[in-house]
Amino acid sequence: MSALLFALLVWLAAWALNVWLAGSPVAKTRFGKALVPLIFGATLLVLWEGLVRGLGIAPVILPAPSAIAAKIATSLPMLWQDFAQTILKGAIPGFLIGSGAAFLTAVAIDRSPFLQRGLLPIGNFVAALPIVGLAPILVMWFGFGWESKAAVVVVMVFFPMLVNIVAGLQASERMQRDLMATWGASYLQTLVKLRLPAALPFVFNGLKIASTLALIGAIVAEFFGSPTFGMGFRISTEVGRLGLDMVWAEIAVAALAGSLLYGIVALIERWMTFWHPSQRH
């Protein structure tokens, strides 16, 4: 019980510290902006640990963060193997292929307003569908290996990307297109010099959505069949054996991978669309 009390006290103290920090000039600095959420996250872990110890919660229901950390430390090779299978071979190639295909399709239908008017509503609708449902079918087609995982990711990523890129290609202002016309610019020149750069903010918006979808797709697909490794496989088998510390270890890896992928996309976005009002503070 005392562990729980201690944890609660730490949490309250940290919260008070955060309240004070948020009101102080420190909060305006970059350091303060990173510090406050970090303190919050850290105290959440302390609270969790205290809760598990203080109430004596069984590890098959909720393992303590320290137990999870210990598990991570002892099973690094296995976690790496799962990560490589699911993220490096499944999610990332699928993400790249799906986004690339959406980009090519968007440019290909760019010259046909007819196709755009036909494809856009359908694309919008399909983008809202639970496409994860295709996972079992694609696993049936492409087998248990990483290829089927990548295929699921391609399909999941394709439609949100397509919708965003097509919208982006129409985002340039009419005045700027007219200017291009007065200079006698060709279709290709207008596309490369005006419309593609103007579409970038939309493309990155799509890429951010796609980066989280990619991980979901790769992991779900493993529930329908996989070799005897991979994050989805490990999670479903360990859950069956009530090895929840291993499950949480995989979740930690997934969270890290997801945040990393998202962060990379956001960094490239900041670098390539520095000129956009949303990036200029």
Binding site: E173, M175, T273
Partner: peptide, 8 residues
């Protein structure tokens, strides 16, 4: 009427 410069 507007400058219409490319922000990038």
């Amino acid at each position: 009427q507007a400058a219409g410069l490319y922000p990038w």
